[in-house]
Amino acid sequence: MALPKMLTRAAGAAADAGGVVLRRLQNARIPGAGMPPVHDDARRAVARWRVVTVLVSPDQVGVADDVPRPLADFRDRIEIRVTPAPGDKGTELAARFRGPASDDDIGELRSALRRAKQLLEVGEVLRVDPVSHGRREPTPQGELLEEAATQAPKGGVL
């Protein structure tokens, strides 16, 4: 196989792996690094409330038919809880799936909560793409990072 073709295939495989790497990273148990010894199993992870704290009052968040737009897209697949946060921290906006959900669904919910928070606090969602950059060859390492960055809005610990 010609070298450019091999590199292209390797880059494609790396891109697929990028999202996997990010998911693994957030569940990694590094000895001696203070990671918890127990992680949620898949069922518990789906059922867990995912929460952002928003610096607005509870009545500005909206409930029922008036939920923040990114969360409204989930319709009745999720339940939403809005409670005052302690001190001067605003409002806790929580959501969780009512029934089964995949890892991708959970990622979408993370992203929706983050976007809802930005809409409530800032009024719009911060964009970064398209970003100005120079030449990017399709190297495996580059594709891996590209995919990890693409998945990053849906990743993390939320």
Binding site: L25, Q26, A28, V52, R110, V125, L126, A152, K154
Partner: peptide, 21 residues
């Protein structure tokens, strides 16, 4: 800042929370 990094997944995975961008 909570809203300065549009791709918080990487830093949350590494540090537990994401700083701004």
């Amino acid at each position: 800042c909570d809203n300065g990094n549009p791709d918080p997944g990487i830093t949350e995975a590494v540090w537990g929370q994401s700083p701004g961008g």
